[in-house]
Design a protein around this nucleic acid. Structure first.
Lengths: 265, 265
DNA sequence: ATCCGGGTAATTGCATACAGTATGTCGTCT
DNA sequence: AGACGACATACTGTATGCAATTACCCGGAT
């Protein structure tokens, strides 16, 4: 049953965040085990992306598990048995455990001592709180983006907007979600605040997990609001950008609850 | 050299966040390995805290490492060799590795594939960004707290305030930092948003790491601002609470930079 | 002298083995 | 029949072993 081994590499080796493969600018640190790193002056300018590091298995496992959770193969509340995951992914328990550690701190699974990992089971209250936090972070990011966006950035924003509208017209739910994520991610990057952008990244990913089911009906309004937002950013209108983003995320939050209400009836 | 083994248990077994030792309300999950849990009707009402779970070593290691980082035993940029840490803490490499995973996602260390863990080396820019995000989160939390605080809560706030002022008078830097953390943590809990509170918790802890050196000079003003903030919360004045917190965190941020400027001269 | 090369030591990454703990089941006693 | 208790099983937690990669060191060539 370990067909997935290849799959794993073929599919999810886009080592996105974290796990920095770069070598730091050789800072001479005080304590340390002993300076083992020599200084190599040249080549410092070009931001050359080091190719093909031996991407650790834990990274691949981590991403594979998120994928399995998001697409509901692993359902909330499910007990994740380490050896099962390991066999399924064709690795040993070790990288699985390391991935689980990371998944825990990011809220995807809960680790119960001596009992193991369980796919996180979000309550409606928690989802609401997450959406609330998301609103605050996104608003801040929108304001900063409005301050700093260049015309080229705005150009890119419009392109992302078009992609989203196209997906909307094509009823491409998958594409819609992706486009939405891309737009918000780009704005967060425009903010120039890396810490903020990373935080939004993880929060949004979780939001998307809870929220995917309602992406469709909200689509129309959402992308109109996106257009408004881009306009505000283009005009560097900080207040407007912040206000629109607050409303935008607020409506998303509301849509979530309405959908919940329907789902329970 | 493994005297630290006892230390480790004696000192840092206050399993704070995460690692939920509670047994969930027995949700019947669809997939799962198979329902192994029986239902026990009685005793369900009383919220009895299950005592003394076998706290995993990784948890203790995690906390020990944070302590070592915060108190500068492990200096930023330092290469953390797994077997050294393991020997020092009196455990094997395994729990160390798991702790490092978690430390990475929370920004304490950087993991470079095939090279190991390095204590995170914060740039001034990053510290600024973190302080910026902190301001936003804390402001949100202050507003929510103002909405919901009961007179009893306000009472507690004043007690925390007194503790801080006392530490200030006694020139107790350690106590000052602790009191400050306690006050902010309490407010974040008052917000009623658990997700927000947790996020503030981790952000604040990192801020404290960067910021501890300047806690003293800023102390006086900070605690005056705290008093203002509590007043606003007591009057349930949401706008004022938010504004004061924004200013408060903004000043902290400014103080950080001024201190940096001094340090570099 | 500097740059390039091979060789060596050190360290990570992964796998496996063992021990401890919790759960489920069956039998027995009241 | 219900409840308690011992046994068996499954899974996690921890330790150890092995292979692969990396960084360092030193000698030789340019």
């Amino acid at each position: 049953m370990n067909f997935a081994y290849n799959n794993l590499y073929a599919e999810s080796i886009h080592l996105t965040d974290r796990e920095v493969p770069v070598n730091q600018p050789a800072v001479p640190f005080p304590g340390g085990t002993g300076g083992r790193r020599g200084s190599r002056a040249a080549l410092s300018g070009a931001a050359a992306k080091r190719v093909e590091r031996p991407a650790p298995l834990r990274q691949a496992v981590y991403e594979a598990l998120i994928e399995l959770i998001v697409n509901r193969t692993l359902v909330p509340g499910q007990h994740l048995v380490e050896v099962e995951l390991a066999e399924y992914l064709g690795v040993s328990r070790q990288p699985v455990r390391e991935a689980l550690q990371r998944l825990q701190t990011e809220g995807w699974v809960d680790l119960r001592p001596a009992q193991g990992a369980f796919v996180h089971l979000p309550t409606e209250e928690e989802a609401d709180q997450l959406l609330s936090v998301r609103g605050v972070l996104e608003t801040h990011s929108a304001r900063l983006a409005a301050e700093r966006a260049t015309p080229e950035d705005v150009e890119q924003l419009w392109e992302l907007q078009e992609a989203g509208v196209a997906a909307l017209a094509a009823e491409d739910v998958e594409g819609l979600v992706t486009a939405n994520a891309a737009l918000h991610a780009f704005i967060s990057r425009l903010s120039g605040n890396t810490v903020l952008a990373e935080m939004i990244g993880t929060v949004d990913r979780r939001v998307r997990w809870y929220y995917t089911p309602i992406a469709r009906p909200r689509g129309n309004d959402a992308w109109n609001e996106h257009a408004e937002l881009i306009k505000a950013i283009a005009e560097q209108d900080v207040e407007a950008a912040g206000r629109i983003m607050t409303e935008h995320t607020g409506r998303t939050r509301q849509a979530y609850h309405e959908r919940q209400a329907v789902a329970e009836s």
